[in-house]
Amino acid sequence: MRHRKKFNHLGRTTSHRKAMLSNMAVSLIKHKRIHTTLAKAKALKVFIEPLITKSKEDTTHSRRTAFSYLKDKEAVSILFREVSEKVAQRPGGYTRILKTGNRIGDNAEMCFIELVDFNENMLESASTKKSTRRRRSSSKKKTESSPAAEVKAETEVKEEVKDAVVEEKEVKAEPETEAKEESKAPEAKADTPAEEASDDEEKKKEE
């Protein structure tokens, strides 16, 4: 019985499956990218990533362990010379699977599996990303919150307050002048009848 055996047998015997994964791992190490089915790529990912982790420690024991899986001296030397230097700072996830659609004959899911640190196009695109709108808004906020901008804003507020105070004073002064003129006008009107009465009395006397 196959209780708790969840890995994909790929329709092959144990010896056939191990030989196939070993051959695919050698091809991936030499060419850095291969085209295969999605099921085989997932099985290869589990097979090769522990070997890449072991290649970070370049000792005789780790080289012999890798050779027992790969069965290829050239692939082992490339793994410990080139690949280990590239992945030295990476804590895992050395491979990437890129789906390419289904195969015409049997409609099997196809994909590329590649070593992440050897895809130069993706590394360049990741390093040269376009600026987003958030950066523009943050730059505006920075310019507005600069000390020079704050000083300008304070001076503008002070000038506006002064203008408002001057306008209020002018508005208050205008009603006072109008009230004074009105108070003077009745006095002038009250004086004129007395003067007319005195003129009439003088005319009568003269007569």
Score class of each variant (00 low, 15 high):
residue 2 R to P: 14
residue 2 R to G: 15
residue 5 K to E: 13
residue 5 K to P: 03
residue 6 K to A: 14
residue 7 F to K: 10
residue 7 F to I: 08
residue 8 N to K: 06
residue 13 T to F: 08
residue 14 T to V: 15
residue 14 T to Q: 11
residue 15 S to C: 08
residue 16 H to L: 08
residue 17 R to E: 00
residue 19 A to S: 13
residue 21 L to N: 07
residue 23 N to T: 14
residue 23 N to F: 12
residue 24 M to T: 01
residue 25 A to C: 08
residue 26 V to N: 02
residue 26 V to Y: 01
residue 26 V to S: 01
residue 26 V to F: 04
residue 27 S to C: 03
residue 27 S to N: 09
residue 28 L to Y: 08
residue 28 L to E: 08
residue 30 K to F: 02
residue 30 K to Y: 04
residue 32 K to C: 04
residue 32 K to D: 06
residue 35 H to P: 00
residue 40 K to A: 04
residue 42 K to C: 03
residue 43 A to H: 03
residue 44 L to R: 06
residue 45 K to A: 06
residue 47 F to L: 01
residue 48 I to C: 12
residue 48 I to G: 12
residue 51 L to W: 01
residue 53 T to L: 10
residue 56 K to V: 03
residue 57 E to F: 15
residue 63 R to Y: 05
residue 63 R to K: 15
residue 65 T to H: 08
residue 65 T to Y: 11
residue 68 S to F: 02
residue 70 L to A: 03
residue 72 D to A: 05
residue 74 E to M: 09
residue 76 V to Y: 01
residue 77 S to Q: 11
residue 77 S to C: 00
residue 79 L to D: 05
residue 79 L to P: 09
residue 80 F to N: 02
residue 81 R to G: 08
residue 88 A to W: 02
residue 88 A to Q: 10
residue 95 T to K: 04
residue 96 R to D: 11
residue 97 I to R: 12
residue 97 I to G: 13
residue 97 I to Y: 11
residue 99 K to D: 03
residue 106 D to Y: 12
residue 106 D to F: 12
residue 108 A to W: 04
residue 109 E to S: 15
residue 109 E to H: 09
residue 110 M to H: 01
residue 110 M to V: 08
residue 111 C to D: 08
residue 112 F to V: 04
residue 113 I to Y: 06
residue 113 I to T: 02
residue 114 E to Q: 07
residue 114 E to L: 09
residue 115 L to D: 03
residue 119 N to P: 01
residue 119 N to S: 09
residue 120 E to M: 10
residue 120 E to Y: 10
residue 122 M to R: 14
residue 123 L to I: 14
residue 123 L to G: 00
residue 123 L to Y: 02
residue 123 L to N: 06
residue 124 E to Q: 14
residue 128 T to E: 12
residue 131 S to Q: 14
residue 131 S to D: 13
residue 133 R to K: 10
residue 133 R to N: 07
residue 134 R to H: 03
residue 135 R to W: 01
residue 140 K to N: 07
residue 141 K to M: 05
residue 143 T to L: 15
residue 146 S to G: 11
residue 147 P to F: 11
residue 147 P to L: 12
residue 147 P to R: 13
residue 148 A to S: 13
residue 151 V to E: 12
residue 152 K to C: 00
residue 153 A to I: 04
residue 153 A to L: 09
residue 153 A to N: 07
residue 154 E to Q: 13
residue 154 E to S: 12
residue 155 T to W: 02
residue 156 E to C: 02
residue 156 E to M: 10
residue 157 V to N: 05
residue 157 V to P: 00
residue 159 E to Y: 09
residue 161 V to H: 06
residue 161 V to T: 01
residue 162 K to C: 05
residue 162 K to W: 05
residue 164 A to M: 07
residue 167 E to R: 11
residue 167 E to K: 13
residue 168 E to W: 13
residue 170 E to P: 01
residue 170 E to W: 11
residue 171 V to T: 08
residue 173 A to C: 02
residue 174 E to V: 13
residue 175 P to Y: 04
residue 180 K to E: 12
residue 183 S to K: 15
residue 185 A to W: 06
residue 185 A to M: 06
residue 186 P to M: 05
residue 188 A to I: 08
residue 191 D to H: 06
residue 192 T to W: 05
residue 192 T to M: 10
residue 192 T to H: 04
residue 194 A to I: 07
residue 196 E to P: 06
residue 197 A to K: 09
residue 200 D to V: 13
residue 201 E to F: 11
residue 204 K to L: 05
residue 205 K to E: 09
residue 206 E to Q: 12
residue 207 E to N: 15
